[in-house]
Simulated assay, not measured.
Amino acid sequence: MSIKNEAEDRAAQIIHTMRRLATRTVLFHQAAAQSLGLFPTDLKSADLLNELGPLTAGELSEKTGLSSGAVTALIDRLEKAGYAKREKDPKDKRRVIIVPLTAGKSQVKELFRSLSTSTKELTNEYKPEELDLIIQFITEAADIMEQELQLLKSKL
């Protein structure tokens, strides 16, 4: 087999494996959200708030791709479930920001405990330099996904 064919086969295998991982990740998050009495979008939006910090409803709409009406309902559900709250923007009292709360974090952390433990055990099977390469690859793949997400959203 030529080097070019071997590289193409590896690339195809990586793409297939990443699709498989992405599908299992979506299904896992869907089941996790359901077990908390949330919609998957609610759980991922709470995760976005925890990652990015307080956002306006408009910013949350932009990040999630949801309409303003859907974001309002989403924020209502997150408030009711104890994952976020509305606060006046300290920089502009006319605006409201959505602030993540820590109340629901322990429930979410417990749901992901087994997955975290298993992932940590998996990392123990690799050398530090191999882990560095894996981290680099996953980081760059996430950056590509972000670029592709923005490209797709620009076409909507």
Rank of each mutant, 00 (worst) to 15 (best):
residue 32 A to N: 02
residue 29 H to Y: 15
residue 41 T to Y: 13
residue 84 A to G: 04
residue 66 L to T: 07
residue 65 G to N: 12
residue 75 I to K: 10
residue 46 A to D: 13
residue 95 R to N: 08
residue 44 K to H: 12
residue 69 G to L: 04
residue 49 L to D: 02
residue 65 G to R: 09
residue 55 L to E: 01
residue 78 L to F: 14
residue 47 D to Y: 15
residue 76 D to W: 09
residue 50 N to I: 11
residue 32 A to L: 01
residue 91 K to N: 09
residue 57 A to P: 05
residue 71 V to W: 00
residue 87 E to H: 03
residue 46 A to H: 12
residue 30 Q to N: 09
residue 45 S to Y: 07
residue 57 A to G: 11
residue 34 Q to I: 10
residue 56 T to M: 03
residue 43 L to I: 10
residue 94 R to V: 03
residue 76 D to H: 13
residue 70 A to R: 11
residue 45 S to E: 08
residue 71 V to H: 01
residue 65 G to D: 14
residue 83 Y to M: 10
residue 52 L to G: 00
residue 45 S to C: 13
residue 95 R to L: 10
residue 91 K to L: 11
residue 85 K to L: 15
residue 68 S to Y: 00
residue 84 A to L: 13
residue 28 F to E: 00
residue 81 A to H: 13
residue 52 L to V: 11
residue 44 K to L: 15
residue 54 P to W: 14
residue 92 D to Q: 05
residue 56 T to S: 13
residue 38 L to K: 08
residue 79 E to M: 09
residue 53 G to V: 13
residue 34 Q to T: 12
residue 92 D to L: 05
residue 28 F to L: 05
residue 83 Y to D: 05
residue 48 L to R: 13
residue 70 A to N: 12
residue 78 L to H: 08
residue 79 E to S: 09
residue 85 K to A: 08
residue 28 F to I: 00
residue 69 G to N: 02
residue 51 E to K: 11
residue 56 T to N: 04
residue 36 L to R: 06
residue 30 Q to H: 15
residue 70 A to K: 08
residue 31 A to Q: 11
residue 29 H to F: 15
residue 65 G to Q: 12
residue 59 E to C: 04
residue 68 S to F: 05
residue 51 E to T: 10
residue 81 A to E: 03
residue 67 S to V: 03
residue 35 S to V: 06
residue 37 G to L: 01
residue 39 F to Q: 10
residue 69 G to H: 00
residue 94 R to C: 02
residue 38 L to R: 05
residue 36 L to I: 07
residue 94 R to N: 02
residue 32 A to E: 01
residue 28 F to S: 00
